[in-house]
Amino acid sequence: MGKAFGVVLTIITTISVAIFVSRHWWFPEVASAHGGAMDHQFVETFVGAAIGFILAQLALAVFAWKYGEQKGDNRPIRIFPGGVKWLLVLAFVYVGSEIILLEFVGQKVWAAMYFTPPATDSLQVQVLAGQFAFYFRYPGPDGKFGPIHADKIDEASANFFGIDPSDPASKDDIVTAELAVPVNKPVELLLNSKDMDHGFYLREMRVQQDMLPGMQIPIHFTPTKIGKYDIACNQLCGLGHYNMRAFLEVMSEEDYQKWIVQQASLQ
């Protein structure tokens, strides 16, 4: 029984590690400036974890294979050589070095996203999430967003942001159902929610942030690849949660200028 356990465990370990290493299932390709560092961080963690995983599982497999009790077995038991001491040292060294490596050296991505202010020339876009759609608002030429009046939000008349038309700051605001940004230009998103706890999940940009009502949460990143990406809600928000999505379109600078002019004319 112990031998069988050793074999099965070895097979499970091998297959698990092989699938990870084959990268058959892996992150979608990075399309933002900070994303590469994050993937690097993942690989580093993975190497550390894989070493621990393989050693622990194989040790277990070997022990189960080797130390099964036979009929009439009078072999004396053996205490682990060195007792507790070396195991303690191993745990502290292995986990300790991981902690130092990951926590204090590897948190650049987190710091880059959340501890540093966005570049001053960032394109600001306001995002408003509601059951079950995202809407986006560009400030227009004046660079100012008008206030959101929750009582004025009306899907029927397409006033998704509750804009007061008489407000001068709101006049030139451009509301869209799709997020478009120029490539290689820093973007700052101001995340708002009108009802539930929603999530803003942009896989290829390595961006994710919850959106809470009563708070405006800023995040910033720089897209580096032209293309169309999926924005998913990743915080349970109700029955249509699975269907709540939007698109991010990263365009060349000229395409973006054309697009924004066209959107402005639709308001």
Binding site: F145, P147, I148, H149, A150, G162, N192, G214, M215, Q216
Partner: peptide, 8 residues
């Protein structure tokens, strides 16, 4: 503090 969206 709570966000007053009217005044942002």
């Amino acid at each position: 503090p709570t966000l007053d969206e009217k005044t942002n």
